[in-house]
């Protein structure tokens, strides 16, 4: 048995008595509060406060078999935790600042190497296509992920309508530029307007959609209203929001994040657990709402459908 012996000098005799007492109180108070904080954050769900944006149901859309096995994140998660630098760089900025964005009327310009270039009013742009729900995993390059039930239509359907010229090899998308309504654009955090791109065969893939809604409702502004791209096997920033222009081209577009930090973000940006971001590992991700991180899946788990697009390519070099 071990008996603890008293030390010959008690620490209270070394340190000045008053200071010692205060120090002890301090440590006690600090310890209690720290433990409280840690316990408190685990397991408390986010408050479901009434949102400040209008919520309008999408009248007609088909349920689709995609992703029916995944449990979607809370509506609150998907609509208050956003990267949309046009409204500020903090995650809560878009849901706080995107209210003034005017999405009616909205024009989408389709031009470049197409047989039928046109400026479309949004309603006419969407009308020809049957809307369907797609429940997709969304993996952000920042190591978090969500599952979101989008409503939209395949990008391929649109491309078939506008008929790319034989020389077209890439599709370039551009976000609205309007610093008045998008306060984040008043500072040069990124080169505005935001630009993204896909190779034409990627854009034609049936998993790539143009989304107009989520959770059965039209997109709130912070999620990229009125129309945005969703490419579930790529990092979230490829999903360009509030699109005003779709241009077909024979040159690989320079996307905004690549322009900002070419050693960290490439053109392809396929989800890939074995290619680290220079500043963090991409091997795992935190699904929003969970504590333990999940292993990240190559092509975000959509490899069976999309891996053939990249046959023979070095995905470490083409990150």
């Amino acid at each position: 048995m071990l008996l603890r012996t008293r030390p010959a000098i008690r620490s209270s005799e070394i340190t000045d008595k008053k200071l010692y007492l205060r120090r002890r109180e301090f440590i006690q108070a600090a310890a209690v509060t720290a433990v409280g904080a840690a316990a408190g954050t685990l397991g408390v769900p986010q408050a479901d406060a009434a949102p400040s944006w209008p919520r309008v149901k999408v009248p007609n859309f088909a349920k689709s078999p995609y992703g029916a096995d995944e449990k979607p994140n809370a509506y609150q998660d998907a609509t208050t935790y956003n990267n949309f630098y046009e409204f500020g760089v903090e995650k809560e900025d878009p849901s706080n600042n995107a209210g003034p964005l005017k999405t009616k009327p909205w024009t989408v310009k389709v031009d470049g190497l197409v047989d039928k270039p046109a400026d479309y009013q949004l309603e006419d742009f969407i009308k020809p296509y049957a809307l369907e729900e797609r429940i997709y995993r969304m993996r952000c390059v920042e190591r978090w992920s969500m599952v979101i039930p989008w409503i939209g239509f395949p990008l391929a359907s649109l491309l078939k309508t506008v008929q790319p010229a034989p020389t077209a090899k890439f599709v370039e998308f551009t976000t609205l530029f309007n610093p008045q309504q998008m306060p984040g654009q008043r500072r040069d955090v990124l080169r505005w307007p935001y630009v993204e791109g896909l190779r034409l065969d990627e854009a034609m893939h049936p998993l790539a959609i143009l989304a107009v809604g989520l959770y059965g409702e039209y997109l709130p502004n912070q999620n990229g209203a009125p129309i945005r791209l969703v490419v579930p096997w790529k990092y979230g920033f490829k999903g360009i929001k509030s699109i005003v222009r779709i241009r077909l081209t024979d040159r690989q577009p320079m996307n905004s994040w690549q322009l900002s930090a070419p050693s960290e973000y490439g053109f392809y940006s396929n989800v890939n657990p074995s290619v680290d971001h220079p500043r963090w590992s991409q091997a795992r991700e935190r699904r929003i709402g969970e504590f333990f991180m999940r292993p990240t899946l190559v092509f975000n788990g959509y490899g069976d459908q999309v891996a053939s697009l990249y046959a023979g390519m070095d995905l470490k070099k083409n990150y």
Partner: peptide
């Protein structure tokens, strides 16, 4: 002043218990 220094922590705890840390509370902390 001693108490004031604990305020940021108390605010964090309050936010934790009132579900006011956002969707990713651990990163917020």
């Amino acid at each position: 002043v001693l108490a004031a220094g604990l305020l940021p922590l108390l605010v964090l705890i309050w936010r934790a218990f009132n579900a006011a840390l956002g969707a990713n509370p651990l990163l917020e902390i």
